[in-house]
């Protein structure tokens, strides 16, 4: 049970194609990196997530052409409170990368990826439903799993497990 410590130094991880591509495009976009348990995480500035994803999808070196998953983690009461997490898969290269955007509780909103991958639709609606994150530019941002007249966002950490009765 030995786990190598996580690498968080941008200089050491420059060789990774996704990091290299994003740094070459705009160094300000990458706000942090982490390589832990053989998984690569790149923290992206929230204003640039859509362009960053479109770049990684179309780049001939990385070809992260498949959006596996979008999800969210609530770090209540810490700030920035929310992390929206994107898992990309490269079908030709058989590689994964994880992109993260941090959002504060005052304005939990980020640009929608629906124009990059149409499949982002349901994932984003689910996060809107269960976490209350707004996705700007989403074509149909309504609750997906909970009833339409439900109050609150159940997967937030300040929402009790047994619900309100």
């Amino acid at each position: 049970m030995t786990i190598a410590p996580a690498i968080t130094d941008v200089e050491q991880l420059k060789g990774h194609p996704a990091v290299a591509r994003l740094l070459a495009w705009n160094p300000a976009v990458v706000t942090g990196v982490k390589f832990d348990r053989d998984e690569m995480t790149i923290y992206i500035d929230r204003a640039n997530i859509r362009e960053a994803c479109a770049l990684l999808r179309d780049d001939a070196e990385c070809v992260f052409n498949f959006l596996s998953d979008i999800t969210c983690v609530d770090w209540y009461p810490a700030e920035p409170r929310f992390e929206v997490i994107y898992h990309l898969l490269s079908i030709p290269k058989k590689e994964r990368v994880r992109l993260k955007v941090r959002l504060d509780s005052a304005s939990p909103a980020v640009e929608s990826l629906c124009s990059v991958w149409a499949g982002a639709n349901y994932f984003e609606r689910e996060i809107f439903d269960l976490f209350g994150i707004r996705f700007t530019g989403h074509p149909y941002l309504r609750r997906l799993l909970m009833p339409e007249d439900w109050e609150g966002h159940p997967l937030r950490k300040d929402y009790p497990v047994e619900g309100y009765r």
């Binding site: 998984e39 995480t41 596996s68």
Partner: peptide, 29 residues
């Protein structure tokens, strides 16, 4: 503490679990 995304090929396609640990005995997410 840490996070992993593990995907397997289920009969229907890519089934993935994303688990975040905060170092305790219960998963954070």
């Amino acid at each position: 503490a840490g996070e992993v995304y593990q995907a397997v090929e289920s009969p229907r396609g890519e089934m993935g679990y994303y688990i975040v640990s905060d170092g305790t005995a219960k998963p954070y997410r």
